[in-house]
Amino acid sequence: MTRKAVALISGGLDSLLAARVIQEQGVHVEGINFFTGFCVEGHTHAIRKKDKDKPKRNNALWVAEQLGIKLHIVDIVEEYKDVVINPKHGYGANLNPCLDCKIFMVQQAYQWIRDKGFDFIITGEVIGQRPMSQRKETLPVVARESGADDLLLRPLCAKNLPPTLPEREGWVDRDRLHDFSGRSRKPQMALARQYGFEDYAQPAGGCCFLTDENYSIKLQDLWTHRGEKRYELDDIMLLKVGRHLRPEGQSWKLIIAREEGETRFLSGYKGQFQSLRTLSHGGPLALIDGPTLNDEQIREAAAIVARYGQGKTAPEVELEYSPPGGDGRSVTVAPKAPHEIPQSWYLV
């Protein structure tokens, strides 16, 4: 009887290799990929025009195609919020709740194999590879707290761990699994060569934006100014786009497009946000995130936005302020000088 396994596919090399190791043993493998909203996948490429020439492939789909397996993409945006907002095991260097995230994903995969009649779960985890979620002490935590226990097999480091059910039952041959450990990527690269995989994705920090320091600063700022840790998918998408600028002590911030692609992307949000657009000169679109601005605040915001358009040195610039989904009205202001926008206003 052919055994069936589901592989957690992030789009990186480790999950690609882990799945291939098990496929080679005659197990039927399918992939599962979770969409949290924070994934680094093609988004910024899709938005920013200057990145247009880079391939916009989705790495998880690419991996599945290399392996010749089906890929099930699961939208976990709603359920994942609790992982980001209340991680039981805390955050890593930034707002990345890696350990809770792993537990959650394996838990979801465990539910999936029960629903679909699959036998076990594979991940590309390697002991010691990542500081938070892949330590020797934390790998058993993932297995235990997800409920998957010994149905969770890590083919790349299985020989360093106690035998799991698939090994004990002989569904897979433990001798043909691996004993990788530590931060070195050399064993993975050698195995990739052996299998003939090239052109695989090598994300530097991790698999999502939560490991990014600048992104985490913007998310923390959002929570601080909302007075609660809460977000919607649109919020976290917008944190990936534009220049974010919060004038000191203000309850509103500006999201200013840096180029045409971003302007196009942000204009899709004009129905939900107040916005500013330069009329008299070429200039970016800016969204205003916060309560409805009064006239003085609109002039302040307009003077900042004018600074980023072609009229930045003109004595006056005309802009259009629009309430969410409403008709615009004209505002004429003197653009702010660079020294009037302190560095501390930038949420990098």
């Binding site: 093609g42 899709a46 916009k56 492939r57 989705n58 789909l61 195609e65 890929l71």
Partner: peptide
């Protein structure tokens, strides 16, 4: 999203 030109065909093939 122009990415669909790659992603949807890939998804169909897979």
């Amino acid at each position: 999203d122009p990415g669909v030109q790659n992603d949807i065909p890939a998804w169909c093939r897979i």
